[in-house]
């Protein structure tokens, strides 16, 4: 599913590389936690996956295709197969919950009938179907993140990437979101989650990849968070 071969990323005007010769392989259907101190390169790694950034050297291979070699016009189609979730939700506050989820389908020209069928299903999964008509701005943080999760999965992506999805949430909501991601993984999607939620990483017993100063320092199945939190 995901393969990183000797990937290095150096941002302009930065001395130290954000990623430094990373080699990594994630199989289809895996659930992976990315851990490590802030600035270790977790976000950079994820940005390479949905081609927000290009590697300085090395190859990022998704589904057998080298992401960096993808022509510009093919990038939108790559992104349609990936669901991305952020710490700050990235919702449109003045639109309703339904509209926020439908937005991902609308701007990729999905027929309206299809939208009417898929959006409620996605909202059902995250338990917010009853809030379809509420404005995103009126929801709590946890609810907003669940809307973002619904938007990420409404297209049935093969890969879901979550960059510190619970960074702004209380422990209870953190559990809800992590359980949702786990559920999405059970349904078949490959899930990569960057997080600082030590307790959850420890109790979920998933594969844990630790990054420090742009290098993979630990990669264990059924791993633990491994840092003081």
């Amino acid at each position: 599913m995901i393969q990183l071969i000797n990937v290095t990323k150096v941002y302009p005007h930065m001395k130290a590389p954000s990623l430094d010769g990373v080699n990594l392989r994630v199989e289809r259907g895996e659930f992976v936690f990315l851990v490590g101190p802030s600035g270790a390169g977790k976000s950079t790694l994820m940005k390479l996956l949905y081609r927000e950034e290009l590697p300085t050297s090395g190859q990022v291979i998704l589904d057998g295709k080298d992401v960096a070699r993808l022509p510009r016009r093919a990038v939108p189609y790559l992104r349609r197969s990936i669901g991305v979730i952020f710490q700050d939700f990235k919702l449109l506050p003045e639109r309703t919950v339904f509209q926020n989820v439908a937005f991902a389908l609308e701007c990729t020209d999905v027929p309206r009938r299809e939208i009417a069928r898929r959006v409620p299903a996605a909202l059902e999964l995250v338990g917010l179907r009853h809030k379809s008509r509420a404005l995103a701005a009126e929801l709590s943080g946890g609810e907003q993140q669940r809307v973002a999760v619904a938007r990420a999965i409404v297209r049935n992506p093969v890969l879901v990437i979550a960059d510190e999805p619970t960074g702004n949430l209380d422990p209870e909501n953190t559990w809800t979101i992590m359980n949702l991601l786990n559920q999405i993984n059970q349904m078949g999607a490959t899930v990569v989650v960057a997080t600082h939620a030590a307790e959850i990483v420890d109790s979920m017993k998933k594969r844990v990849i630790a990054l420090e100063r742009g290098r993979v320092v630990r990669d264990e199945n059924r791993g633990t968070y491994g840092y003081e939190s």
């Binding site: 939108p76 189609y77 992104r79 991305v84 990235k90 449109l92 990729t108 020209d109 938007r151």
Partner: peptide, 12 residues
């Protein structure tokens, strides 16, 4: 930025 994220084409 959200449009780009969910895979809208440049033209869209």
């Amino acid at each position: 930025s959200i449009m780009k994220l969910v895979g809208a084409t440049d033209w869209y």
